[in-house]
């Protein structure tokens, strides 16, 4: 099994349909936002729900400082505000 070593060699004509991991593959998706999640960290209990559910992976719950959102990419869907059990996140018009 696996008797021969596989050889990977670049093609002579090398425009292949190969993509590689990239941040912002669809651009700065924060520009799509119509409403912005605003966090009241004094209310935050560090339960992590907003981070877990955030579909864009832009929320970080830091134990010391609370919720941090990367607004460059946050699409403003509002899921974080909806799942927050203590209403520490509010959606406000841009």
């Amino acid at each position: 099994m696996g008797k021969d070593k596989l050889v990977i060699e670049k093609p002579l004509y090398d425009r292949l349909p190969i993509a590689k991991p990239m941040v912002g593959v669809a651009g700065k998706t924060g520009l799509w936002r119509v409403e912005k999640p605003v966090v009241n960290n004094s209310k935050c209990t560090r339960c992590f729900l907003c981070e877990i559910y955030c579909p864009v992976n832009v929320i970080r719950v830091e134990p010391e400082t609370g919720v941090e959102i990367d607004y460059d990419y946050c699409k403003g869907c509002g899921i974080c505000a909806d799942v927050c059990p203590v209403n520490a996140i509010e959606m406000k018009p841009e």
Binding site: D4, E9, D14, L16, K20
Partner: peptide, 26 residues
Amino acid sequence: LGPRRQGYVVDGRELLAIGNLTWPED
């Protein structure tokens, strides 16, 4: 013939995506 030879491989080592959405010029 030698060992199997190809231009790229998807086996979890190098992170490649084959066949993403592609614009007309590309």
